[in-house]
């Protein structure tokens, strides 16, 4: 396959077919927590997309140049100390978490400075992006799958479209919930119940993409 088809394939497969929220059920906390209004949900989606893209690419760079077997840092250490260290992959998790936390800090400062209204609307969910499992999942997938570890472009596209998939899911959810506000929901199902049922139905709908590709 050519590079363009490759990228399109990864983008489609990540955003729709293997949607983080609706297929893997990752990042459910912000998905339910800030999907009350479309503009807030979109802001959250953008923040998460930024953090996922930055974390994905930065961890790819760190892995590639410092952690995996045969990377420049490992080679240099082996040259200096004799061949003793096969790789530094045992540092993977802690470094990934470290990078994610740093990126969230960056986003928080940026949002606070340039979008105070969004900062107030997101509230505690903004720092909570740090603990959003979707982001660590993306970093770990990039480190695990061969087609992503080999190509920086593939990792960039994968992480960006993972974020786009999250944004899509949360904005769709917010749209539905805005309509639900005025709907005549049966009393026992009001509130969280109908929200979870909606999320389940959306996940079912997204299963329709299964089998289209990867």
């Amino acid at each position: 396959m050519g590079v363009v088809t490759d990228i399109l394939f990864i983008a489609l497969a990540t955003a729709l077919i293997n949607n983080l929220v609706l297929t893997y059920f990752l990042g459910i906390c912000p998905f339910l927590g800030v999907s009350r209004r479309i503009d807030t949900a979109f802001g959250m989606g953008c923040a998460v997309t930024f953090v996922i893209t930055m974390s994905g690419t930065v961890t790819w760079l760190i892995s590639h140049f410092a952690l995996v077997k045969g990377s420049p840092l490992v080679e240099a250490i082996n040259r200096l100390a004799g061949a003793q260290v096969p790789d530094l992959l045992f540092l993977q998790y802690i470094i990934f978490i470290f990078v994610i936390a740093g990126m969230v800090q960056l986003v928080e400062m940026y949002v606070r400075r340039f979008a105070p209204a969004l900062y107030r609307a997101l509230g505690v969910y903004l720092p909570l992006i740090t603990t959003n499992c979707a982001i660590l999942f993306v970093c770990l997938t990039i480190a695990r799958e061969a087609r992503l570890t080999e190509s920086f472009l593939a990792a960039l596209v994968y992480s960006f479209f993972a974020g786009i998939g999250f944004t899509l899911a949360i904005v769709l959810m917010a749209g539905i919930r805005e309509q639900l506000e005025t709907a005549d929901v049966p009393a026992p199902l009001r509130g969280p119940a109908i929200t979870l049922i909606t999320a389940g139905l959306m996940a079912l709908a997204f299963m329709g993409f299964k089998g289209m590709a990867g």
């Binding site: 840092l73 045992f90 540092l91 470094i95 470290f98 990078v99």
Partner: peptide
């Protein structure tokens, strides 16, 4: 000892 030292050095550099 080397592994622990390496981990510390790498993390400090990142920090």
């Amino acid at each position: 000892g080397l592994t622990i030292g390496l981990a510390i050095v790498v993390m400090l550099a990142l920090a």
